[in-house]
C-alpha cells in the first residue's frame, strides 16, 4: 500500500471537519501524502468565511452540541481550518473541490477558501487515490 491517504469529506459539520483536519495533520506528520476531496456539505463548509459562522454538529449527537462547542471554545481548540492549514504547512496535503457540487450549486473556485487548490471530477480523485487508503467522512 502506498504511503498516501485520500479522504472524501462529504460532511460539513464542525466535528467532522475537525476530525478530517486532525487526521490530515497526523498523516502529514507521518509523511503520508494526503488528498482531501470536498463534496456536498463538505464543500459548502469550504466556502469563504463559512468556517466563522458554521456551528453545525452531527445530527446523531445533537443533544451534545452545545456542550461540545463550549468545551472546544473554552479549551481554545484551534478551528478546523487552522488545523488544516497547519497540516498543509508541515506536509503534502492537497484539498480538491468536487466538480459536480460546484456545478450544481453554482460555486466557483474563487468562492472557496484558498486552501482549496482546484476543482476535480470524481474520476481524477479515484485515480489519484488508487493504491492508497480511502476514508469517507
Amino acid at each position: 500500500m502506498e504511503d498516501k491517504i485520500s479522504i472524501i469529506l462529504f460532511s460539513g459539520t464542525v466535528d467532522k471537519l475537525l476530525a478530517v483536519a486532525t487526521i490530515a495533520s497526523g498523516a502529514a506528520a507521518m509523511q503520508k501524502k494526503v488528498q482531501i476531496f470536498v463534496t456536498f456539505y463538505g464543500l459548502l463548509a469550504f466556502r469563504k468565511d463559512a468556517w466563522k459562522t458554521n456551528r453545525r454538529l452531527s445530527k446523531e449527537f445533537e443533544d451534545f452540541a452545545t456542550e461540545a462547542l463550549k468545551a472546544m471554545e473554552e479549551k481554545k481548540v484551534p478551528s478546523w481550518l487552522d488545523t488544516l492549514k497547519a497540516a498543509m504547512e508541515i506536509g503534502d496535503v492537497q484539498v480538491h473541490a468536487c466538480g459536480l457540487t460546484m456545478d450544481l450549486l453554482a460555486i466557483k473556485l474563487e468562492d472557496l477558501e484558498p486552501v482549496v487548490s482546484d476543482v476535480v471530477g470524481v474520476g481524477t480523485f479515484v485515480e489519484n487515490a488508487s493504491g492508497g487508503q480511502i476514508l469517507f467522512i
Binding site: T22, S25, G26, A29, K75, K76, V77, P78, A86, I90
Partner: peptide, 17 residues
Amino acid sequence: RGSFCPGPLMEMIRLIR
C-alpha cells in the same frame, strides 16, 4: 501545555524545521 493533539506534534515539527 494547553494545546491538544496534534498541536504539540506540530510545534515539534516547526521547531525541528
